[in-house]
Design a protein around this nucleic acid. Sequence first.
DNA 1: TTCCAGGACCGGG
DNA 2: CCCGGTCATGGA
Length: 301
Amino acid sequence: MGKFFTLENNNCNLTVKNIHCLSLDLTLDCGQSFRWQKNAAGHWCAVVSGTKDGKRIFKFGELSQDSNTGYITFYNCSVDEFYKFWVPYFDLERNYDAILDTYKASGDKSLNAATDKYYGIRITNQDPWETLCSFIISQNNNIPRIKGIIERLCETYGERVRLVPVVDENGLKYDKEFFTFPSAEDIAKLSEDDLAPIRAGFRNKYIIDAAQKVASGEIDLEKLKKLPLAEAEAELLKITGVGPKVAQCALLYGCGQIDAFPVDTWVKKIMEELYPNGLPECTTGTRGIAQQYLFHWRRNI
DNA sequence: TTCCAGGACCGGG
DNA sequence: CCCGGTCATGGA
């Protein structure tokens, strides 16, 4: 414990030094999560979920990173909360540098270009239900609208957590409410009409089917963390509106399956253009990490 | 106006 | 099995 970072307590904030390979700006805005937003002070803010004794618990996260030192400050955060929420969320006990070194040793040009240019991206371990639901919403959709739909879902059916001063795209300051992500149990009770206000279109019925299968226990998301990848995917494919891509996203970002490999339109292009015979051998076991770097790299050309 | 967005479903061949 | 059309919505 603590091998990959050192903690420094000041008042109720916690500053974490010497975390390797973690850029908040890259990690929190690269298409793997949709709810992080900068407040008026430039700190990243979001409500994240965890589990304690089988019950959902929440933490309002407020984080900033020093541009010179790379140190990350977690505001209003105890050491206990840091280990409970943020070590798993950012996968802080995984040796990313060692993984990226094996990519480098392979000599693969594209992988090296992507990991050099965007060094600091980590795969986050998010709440499984929020991740599944978010990526159902993501299908045939664009990122700004995905964020809008998820925001309306939380505002309508989540619980109010806190008022935060933020700045809009015109530089105008205003107070914004932050909400929890509604549980599968809460959404399972709703009808398609109830979801109309979030404007997810044809995805409404998919969201409800997923919520019902999760809430009823027909699909146990916690179990998916331990199952072999293919078996875990087969479980998720039982949901109407969940195909291979959404399933792999839910497993990668929500179930700690670091070898999951979501193939969207961008990754499909990458595979056709650069890897017609498959990803290099060095990525075996960590394909999800390679995927995220290549995805971000190709999208930003 | 038309096209497209971190896809999945459905029908016909 | 594989292919093209279709599905809501909204911004470019």
